[in-house]
Structures are given as structure tokens and as C-alpha cells.
Amino acid sequence: TGEEYIAVGDFTAQQVGDLTFKKGEILLAIEKKPDGWWIAKDAKGNEGLVPRTYLEPYS
């Protein structure tokens, strides 16, 4: 299990392996990579890379 984050903006996948999401979606951070791209999972179970700058902790 990971930590929940809320998307603060829309993001469209730029390449294969990225995860597209919309502002307000809750994402589960699976792995926090030091380069600023995290592996996350959305509510539908889709998994991919997301930019850290689009996420804020969800409580």
C-alpha cells in the first residue's frame, strides 16, 4: 500500500508508461523516485509514472 495524493492539475501521458489523470483524482503513490516522477495507481487500478509536482498529500 502507498500514500494517497490528490491531483492539483490535469496531466496527459507524454509517453508510454505515464499515467493520465485529472485534477481532483486521488492517486496512490507506489514508489517515490528521486527524479520527481513517481509510480502511482488510480482508482481504476491503472498504474504508471506521474510528475510529483501535480500531487499534494490527501488527508
Rank of each mutant, 00 (worst) to 15 (best):
T20H: 06
D35T: 07
W37Q: 06
L28R: 10
Y5W: 11
Y5I: 01
Y58R: 08
Y54S: 08
T1Q: 13
D42L: 02
G17C: 06
E4V: 14
K44Y: 14
E3S: 10
K44V: 09
A43Y: 09
E56R: 11
G36P: 03
T53A: 14
W38F: 07
Q14N: 10
G2I: 12
I39V: 13
T12L: 10
G9F: 15
A29S: 06
T1K: 13
D42E: 01
Q15C: 13
Y5M: 06
T20G: 12
I30P: 00
Y58D: 04
T12F: 13
G2V: 12
Q15K: 15
A40V: 15
E31W: 11
G36D: 07
L27Q: 00
E25N: 07
E25D: 15
D42Q: 01
P34V: 10
P57M: 08
G48A: 02
W37R: 08
K23F: 07
K23P: 03
T53C: 14
I6N: 01
E31S: 11
W38I: 07
I6C: 07
F11Y: 14
W38A: 02
K41D: 01
D10S: 10
N46M: 08
A29L: 15
L19Y: 00
T20N: 08
E56M: 13
A7R: 01
P51Q: 10
A29Y: 04
L27N: 00
W37E: 03
R52N: 14
L27R: 00
R52Y: 15
K22V: 09
G48W: 03
D42K: 01
S59A: 12
A29F: 08
V16N: 10
D35P: 02
G17H: 06
Y54P: 02
P34R: 09
A43R: 12
V50K: 00
L49Q: 09
V16I: 12
K41W: 05
T53Q: 14
L49P: 03
E4R: 15
G36R: 02
V8F: 04
A43C: 12
L49K: 13
A43E: 10
F21M: 05
I39F: 11
R52T: 12
L49G: 07
A13I: 03
K41M: 12
I26K: 06
A43F: 09
L27M: 07
G45E: 04
E3V: 11
N46E: 08
P57R: 09
T53N: 14
K41C: 08
T53W: 15
G2T: 11
D10C: 07
W37D: 04
I39L: 14
G9Q: 15
G2M: 13
Q15P: 03
E47A: 09
A40S: 03
L27S: 00
F21W: 01
P34T: 11
I39E: 03
V50T: 03
K22F: 09
